[in-house]
Design a binder for these strands. Structure first.
Lengths: 189, 189
DNA sequence: CTGAAACGTTGACATTTGTCAACACGAAAC
DNA sequence: GTTTCGTGTTGACAAATGTCAACGTTTCAG
């Protein structure tokens, strides 16, 4: 489990930082069953998570308590509510496991220590941030201009594995359409 | 014009970095009329811009060549296509002035020199990135769950000045609705 | 100043999508 | 093994939004 993170860091940086074991030791492990909530809207997000295996859902509730999913994070990716984590503000989003998952978590104190003492770790943070941002921009641009059917096609191109891995309900909420519409449009492919 | 940037940097950092004049000298100025395009989809984004005055629109074309606007940047904010700029990849977005504007531009070489030699500048970059990201997340979560009317209300709360400052056409494209729908719904407030 | 072009509004209508309800199916709980 | 619950599908209908067209107004170039 820790080895997955080790490999991820090496891949990202091209080579291992000298004190990689120190970096890894700053994380603690976390095993989740299906449907465990690890962050609730309104709380302060205390950790940045590395998903070693499994799958997390980042979502919000609208005023009728429908869920809409902003992001779906699968293994070998990072997950957090960075705005809450970085600014110590109440989170505007919820995070939940949609599969049994293994996570590595780092708290703010550990995170700050590493960004100050391990220059390469600071780089990794920038990379996480850049990737998250790129992802968001991509998503906005698809959302604003695409119809429901086009969004489904987009998902099949962009993240094809999600289509078979996740429930229709979750995918529909990720695409911002109703479950029924999703079910109907799937037929028209 | 340069003083606006100086003030912005001081505000962001709490105090001026020692070599602030060196930082400022790395930017060059740029005057735009209305409707000048400074980045086209497919090109590599060469600059990060600080908007000293005026207003920029970041937008994409869909396949019918309709514009949809991902972001609107007004004075004292930063604008770029960070993914293209950082990764030297073709831009997926266009940038255009919607008002006569004064910009301060920094190229990649200057940017890298500053992030390496002026630690506080690296911090500013992180802040730009974090702000851009926060903004995107906010926008996704409103888009996915709000109706056209709710989006209009959202804009009036979130960025009320834009409503009076910009054309209906531009606002509609920012909200992801047609100009006609926007016109009709404005009546229902 | 003047004409062309872009913009904003409104109406009529088509299309897309959501909502509610019913039902079949399979997974999980007991 | 049976029951229960969540999920996925389908139909009927309602609501939201887009499209096309017309027209008056504003803006801007010449």
């Amino acid at each position: 489990m820790v080895n997955k993170l080790r490999q991820h860091i090496i891949d990202r940086l091209g080579s291992a930082p000298d004190n990689i074991d120190d970096v890894l030791a700053t994380f603690h492990t976390l095993k989740l069953k299906r449907n465990e909530v690890i962050l609730k809207q309104g709380e302060i997000c205390k950790y940045v998570y590395f998903v070693a295996s499994g799958c997390l859902q980042v979502f919000v509730y609208d005023k009728e308590m429908n869920e809409t999913t902003r992001d779906i994070i699968t293994e070998n990716n990072w997950c957090s509510e960075l705005i809450s984590f970085g600014g110590q503000k109440p989170a505007t989003e919820n995070i939940r496991s949609v599969e049994p998952s293994d996570l590595l978590a780092i708290d703010r104190q550990g995170f700050q220590r590493l960004t100050e003492t391990v220059p390469q770790f600071d780089n990794i943070y920038k990379q996480i941030l850049e990737a998250s941002y790129a992802n968001s921009v991509y998503r906005i641009n698809t959302f604003v201009s695409l119809t429901a059917l086009e969004r489904i096609k987009w998902l099949m191109d962009y993240r094809p594995k999600l289509m078979s891995r996740l429930s229709s309900k979750l995918i529909a909420s990720y695409l911002g359409i109703s479950q029924e519409t999703f079910s109907r449009l799937k037929g028209k492919l």
